[in-house]
């Protein structure tokens, strides 16, 4: 008998003995106090800032382009790689030398960039999280390998809870999932040394969110 069948056989045999306590019927209670629709954006901004992310809300496309150009100049981001996505392409159009990636430039080659620019699937107000996949993030590496990550999102992409984000992913990708989906909650961090918070452990030390509110 192979180990698969042996293990499954043992599981079935083990489960023939019923556990002493069956659980109560399904509990559907909410884990968190409800968020009103008008609370979602301020909540997201507050949580994201508390995590040491930098949040900017743009009222129009000009403001968005100018903010990104200013950021790149201020932080000295010389090598900027953007996902081939309309929002991203437009956002970096004011940054001199910014590249919109082609398929060939991904994976390990991204290590030499200063800033990665991607879209996302949605934002979670409850926890200040950014949700992206190998599709919206243009692969797995662009959002984690460069030392800084800028996400460009539309206002309509904001949802309240983690549960809603999971439902949205399922709805959008359920038929053909990208191989990676991730909830990004703040810049890369560690507290392994004496519980002291340090940013930029292995992933981006800086995380920016540009919210297009127009």
């Amino acid at each position: 008998m192979n180990s698969r069948d042996a293990i499954l056989g043992r599981i079935r045999a083990a489960l023939r003995a019923p556990a002493p306590h069956a659980p109560a019927p399904a509990l559907a209670a909410e884990l968190f106090p409800p968020l009103r629709a008008d609370e979602a954006l301020p909540r997201f901004a507050r949580e994201f800032a508390a995590l040491k992310g930098v949040f900017h809300r743009s009222p129009d496309a000009n403001d968005a382009r100018a903010w990104v150009a200013g950021l790149a100049a201020r932080r000295g981001f010389a090598r900027v790689a953007a996902a081939p996505d309309d929002l991203c392409r437009d956002a970096v159009s004011g940054v001199p030398g910014a590249q919109t990636l082609e398929r060939e430039a991904c994976g390990a080659q991204l290590a030499s960039f200063d800033l990665g620019v991607t879209a996302c699937d949605c934002l979670v107000a409850r926890t200040g999280s950014i949700v992206l996949t190998a599709q919206s993030g243009f692969g797995r590496a662009l959002s984690v390998l460069p030392p800084a990550h800028l996400v460009v999102a539309r206002r309509a992409q904001l949802v309240g809870e983690i549960r809603e984000a999971l439902q949205l992913l399922e709805l959008r990708h359920g038929k053909m999932w990208p191989s990676m989906a991730t909830f990004i909650t703040g810049p890369s961090r560690t507290a392994d040394i004496e519980k002291i918070l340090v940013l930029g452990a292995h992933g981006p030390r800086e995380l920016y969110l540009l919210l297009l509110d127009f």
Binding site: R126, A134, G139, S179, T182, T185
Partner: peptide, 30 residues
Amino acid sequence: PMLAVSGTGQQLTGYNTLLGGPRQQGETDG
């Protein structure tokens, strides 16, 4: 969220990543 709170007192841990399979058709890396 309950793992995050109990593990480190965070609302959500920094990265919660779902991985399904190797690089899929049309994907750029992985």
